[in-house]
Simulated scan of single mutants.
Amino acid sequence: MKSELFVSAGIVVNRPIPSLKDELAAVQRTLNALYSDYEILVIIQGPVLQQVSDAQAADILSNIPCIRFIQLSFAVPSDVARSAIVENAIGDFVLLFDLAADPLELIAEAVAACQRGSDIIVGVSILAPSPLYRLGRRIASPLLASIDYQLPANATDFRCVSRRAINAVINTGRSHHQLNLRLQKTGYPSQAIAYEQKAEARRDRSLPQACRQFLHLLVFNSSRPLRWMSGIGLLGSLIALIFACYSVLINILKEKVMEGWTTTVLFMSIQFMLLFLILAFISEYLGRLLDERRGIAEYAVVSERNSRTMVNDQRVNVLTDSV
């Protein structure tokens, strides 16, 4: 017997997919077998017609029910596209699903776990990352813990989120930066589900990619690193003052002072390193402030198209269980 839950499955299309119709049909069959009410929300990255052609979209909408195509005017970061799913989905439970990485069997398991009381279901890959990535994660863990980073290790982008958790994210600030972390910070109970990603999606994260993501996690989710840079600046100033006092005392107490070229260069190098480190963090925060105050929407919707059939014609307005 089908569940009477309303489930929204959100998918982001970042590139042309020749087999998109077949993959969406597989998702639709899975949802139709499990739930009486559902929708498949497909966010198509811009530019228009670059990822999905008009003919391909018309073919899909004519033959597969319960699909909503939302075309964005320009390409946006992954977090923004996933936020568009969260803001436009209407289901009781919303799945953030990746066609290339997530197996269909994960849908029923995640929704069932979410229904049992865990408002946020987090996908975790059972495949171990590369040794270099594990080393970097171990080094970065204390800093991540300081900004209340609570995501499990090796977490993927798969999520199943309840309606109240989605409302909390939307109502408590900007959800477009690090959506996964903002979901965790809602305070609602979460649960991790381990699964094996599809073979074509298995790839090690590169060190530059991990470093860039780590920096974004620090900057866009806490102002604490800015306080750290203030402390480093004060420490550097104190060291400079101590060295200045030391050089004055040496000139007073000694008649002949040898030129300390190596010491001077070393000291100046350390000071400039601290200076540019502070400037790097300040520039990131300035960029964050400019992005948040420029008053431009994170994404723009060009069009929204729906399947010819959006409601199950076999459904009657009678529930088997009382609400």
Rank of each mutant, 00 (worst) to 15 (best):
L253S: 05
R182W: 00
D37A: 13
E109T: 07
Q191T: 01
I296C: 14
E304W: 03
I282A: 13
M229E: 10
L215V: 08
L286I: 11
S175G: 15
E298G: 03
A145R: 06
P225D: 08
R212D: 04
R159H: 08
L5N: 11
Y35R: 11
S237V: 02
N88D: 07
L249K: 14
V48A: 09
L183H: 05
P18Q: 03
A300M: 08
L234M: 13
L5H: 09
Q71M: 05
Q271V: 11
P77E: 05
R305C: 09
V7K: 00
P131W: 03
S83G: 08
G117P: 08
S269Q: 07
Q178T: 04
Y35S: 14
D204P: 02
I43H: 00
T264S: 14
L132M: 12
Q213V: 02
D119N: 13
R227I: 04
I239M: 10
I121Q: 11
T264Q: 14
S283P: 03
V169T: 00
G231M: 13
M268H: 08
Q150K: 11
R305H: 14
V42W: 03
S237F: 02
G123L: 10
F93V: 10
D119F: 06
Y299N: 01
T320Y: 11
D313W: 02
F214N: 12
T30A: 15
Q197K: 02
I270R: 09
G10H: 03
D98C: 05
C245M: 04
P65N: 13
Q209D: 12
P189A: 04
E105G: 02
L5T: 01
V311F: 07
I60Y: 05
I193K: 01
A140T: 00
S206G: 14
A84C: 09
V316E: 07
I139W: 15
R212N: 05
A210P: 03
C160Y: 06
D37W: 10
V42R: 02
V124E: 15
I270F: 15
F158T: 13
S73V: 05
I166R: 07
P18N: 06
Y246Q: 11
L106K: 08
L99V: 00
V76Y: 04
V318Y: 09
R29H: 12
F6M: 00
A100V: 07
S62Q: 05
A140N: 02
S222F: 13
V13P: 00
V302I: 13
A168L: 13
D79K: 00
L49V: 07
I242M: 12
G173S: 13
F158C: 08
G260V: 00
